[in-house]
Nucleic acid binder design. Structure first.
Lengths: 215, 215
DNA sequence: GTCTATAGATCGATAGAC
DNA sequence: GTCTATCGATCTATAGAC
């Protein structure tokens, strides 16, 4: 789903663009913006620098294309499907929390957060674009789920976008910040499990409609 | 409190170091890491580049010094004093939430978060150092406050560091992320007030000991 | 469209005089 | 300790051949 242009992959030129884009995507996400040179991208794509500039006018333009595409891809994917099922409310919410945390701690998510925030001063629009296309889409999808849960009477009535933000905030804890600061241990299973359990505990204590008997 | 070395400000050399450090501090925080050149720092400090290198071995070293010092300064300051007082629990917690949000959305906080996370791959240790000296100190101070509140019977018993993380997560919402991505509106009074009120609402619903009658 | 080769500019770091 | 002057490396972007 990472087509930069409207072309299909028929023409030779479009395939080159595709290769360039994917190379840039890999390198930006794995090395960061400042450490990724046009020379390296060209090499990774198997083309020359001149060819690269024939398709993307500047490094910033290529960077924007990568951020725009990848943010949407990841945050729009079906990673939040675990909510359906016949389990009790707590189990369902815990699975949802795990899925959210998985997304928030994904190396690509961490990398793009790092890059976009670092370059937000130079790209006033890109930051907003990224937010709308990424994090805000997650909020929207969660809000829709919680809306349903409120209609069903599982959760008490509240602004569903607020509920989504609170849910994310509770589950995230300090794990995403630590991941962004380079703390590898923030991604460990133990840390994640604890964040999910304690976060969901608080979430249900505040938002569960009736009385949720815990484990 | 931003002394890099143990010297006092007596000697001429120490005053020069001080000026260099403060210039670097201003420029790094206002322009970001990659946009701040040694030439610019020297000019801002009123010295030559050679003098600058006589006191700091490299740009990275100067950057580390700035991050290390400023993180501690801000997160250790007495900005959390608003919790004491004779108000009811909700009012107190709301003032605390405002103080936390003020800190999290402070331009310098946003700027250093951006920079450290962006450079975390090159500086494996600096990220951890920053976390311990900054965000983790905030968690610790909040945990101490909540510990007291639990002893007093105002809040129900729980791991106080978890409580602190949940508190921060609830109040922060998506405001700090948006601020880091360059969204100026994230710092508006309206946004902050709403985040404080709705966040505290959920926090008390989950953690208040008895029954907290709301407004 | 794609290549090689290089221009053009920036910047971190240093040499050497005072 | 501080200066001026400059080196050397790196990187973005382009010119011109095929």
């Amino acid at each position: 789903m990472a087509e930069a242009e409207g072309h299909k992959l028929r023409t030779r030129g479009a395939r080159t663009v595709q290769r360039i884009f994917e190379a840039a995507n890999r390198l930006f996400l794995s090395r960061g913006f400042s450490e990724t040179t046009m020379e390296a991208i060209a090499q990774e794509a198997g083309v020359s620098k001149a060819t690269l500039y024939a398709h993307y006018g500047s490094r910033d333009e290529l960077f924007s294309a990568v951020i725009w595409a990848t943010a949407g891809d990841r945050f729009a994917s079906g990673a939040l499907s675990g909510v359906t099922g016949a389990d009790d409310l707590r189990k369902k919410v815990e699975r949802l929390a795990s899925a959210v945390l998985e997304l928030l701690l994904h190396p690509d998510t961490v990398a793009s957060n790092r890059m976009v925030s670092a370059e937000a001063r130079r790209f006033p629009e890109l930051g907003m674009l990224f937010y709308e296309n990424g994090p805000n889409r997650l909020i929207g999808r969660l809000a829709a789920l919680f809306d349903t849960a409120m209609s069903t009477g599982l959760l008490r009535r509240a602004d569903s976008r607020d509920v989504a933000k609170h849910f994310i905030g509770l589950v995230r804890g300090d794990l995403q910040l630590r991941a962004m600061l380079g703390d590898e241990t923030a991604m460990s299973d133990a840390e994640r499990r604890h964040a999910v359990i304690s976060g969901v505990d608080v979430f249900l204590a505040a938002y569960a409609a009736g009385r949720s008997d815990s484990d």
